[in-house]
Design a binder for these strands. Structure first.
Length: 289
DNA sequence: TCGCAGGTGGTCG
DNA sequence: CGACCACCTGCG
């Protein structure tokens, strides 16, 4: 990986491996990124708004041949060198060797091996914990376009437009105010959770996550994985239930069995395995329509 | 019209 | 415990 600054507000990072913007931003881990016509993504995190582009080196990674080795160039627009070092490098998890992780996971399970080919450029983002908590409380029993709308409304109406309202700001809102931006029954979860964080501080582990109002096992696992970077966390949602049934023969209600299976099969990288599998099954099912 | 969308909390046996 | 079920909202 080699970094240079083109001009003041554009950062170039060369020789980035195991990286694909669609895989990263369309695997359901983040809700604040929008794909532009040129294939780049514009989004917000840590109080900043930037645009991220990525170009594979040479010919587009063509069929078969050394796909895993394909590297490319990352272009960050509207980011300073300092922000890159301080925020985005870590946010994009650029210091982690995903090639190694993929090789390790691929040997453990043949289904996963196939899934890794579908989403070979996935990375687990290092997102802000508070924003992740809010985002995944909103995500429950909801669909992605509306989740995105809800989060943007929250940032625009009660935050500064980029950041979401902080725990103090959110805790003093009234339920009707959140209902007015169509957060529905999750409104009271958010306010209650904000109060809990104001009183007790941010949660530090899985059990403390479960204490939060509106946070059950699925959402807690998402926050643990995406907001705390606990890579062993294995969120079991409807898609994972579906694939666990389809590929591994689990009863869709047997979440306990799935949990144990994931732990034994994928171990410390359960969360990364989940993302490959999730991306894979979703791509399969969505391509049918 | 009604079920569903990356579930959770409450209630009941 | 585990099985139900209501729940905001918007879309097909």
């Amino acid at each position: 990986m080699r970094e240079k600054t083109n001009f003041k507000e554009e950062i170039i990072v060369e020789n980035v491996k195991d990286f694909n913007l669609d895989h990263i931003f369309d695997c359901g881990q983040a809700f604040r990124w929008k794909k532009e016509e040129d294939g780049s993504y514009s989004g917000k995190a840590f109080g900043k708004a930037i645009n991220i582009g990525f170009k594979y080196d040479g010919i587009e990674k063509s069929k078969g041949k050394s796909k895993e080795k394909s590297s490319g160039t990352l272009i960050l627009k509207n980011s300073s060198k300092e922000d890159y070092e301080k925020i985005w490098k870590k946010y994009l998890d650029l210091d982690r060797d995903y090639g190694k992780i993929k090789r390790e996971l691929g040997t453990k399970d043949s289904v996963l091996k196939e899934a890794i080919k579908s989403g070979e450029g996935i990375r687990i983002l290092n997102q802000d914990l508070w924003e992740t908590i809010i985002s995944f409380i909103i995500s429950q029993n909801n669909n992605i376009p509306r989740i995105k709308k809800c989060i943007e409304s929250l940032a625009c109406s009660f935050g500064d437009g980029i950041s979401l309202p902080n725990p103090e700001e959110l805790s003093i809102l009234r339920e009707e105010e959140l209902l007015s931006i169509k957060l529905g029954y999750r409104s009271k979860y958010l306010i209650e959770t904000a109060k809990q964080v104001v009183n007790n501080g941010l949660p530090k582990n899985f059990d403390e996550l479960l204490e939060l109002n509106g946070v059950g096992p699925k959402v807690a696992n998402c926050i643990s994985l995406f907001g705390m970077h606990h890579l062993e966390s294995f969120p079991i949602d409807v898609w994972v239930k579906r694939l666990m049934n389809k590929y591994y023969g689990f009863d869709e209600k047997d979440t306990k069995g799935m949990e144990i299976f994931a732990q034994n099969t994928f171990g410390d990288y359960g969360g990364i395995a989940q993302q490959y599998l999730f991306y894979h099954i979703r791509k399969e099912e969505l391509s049918k329509n």
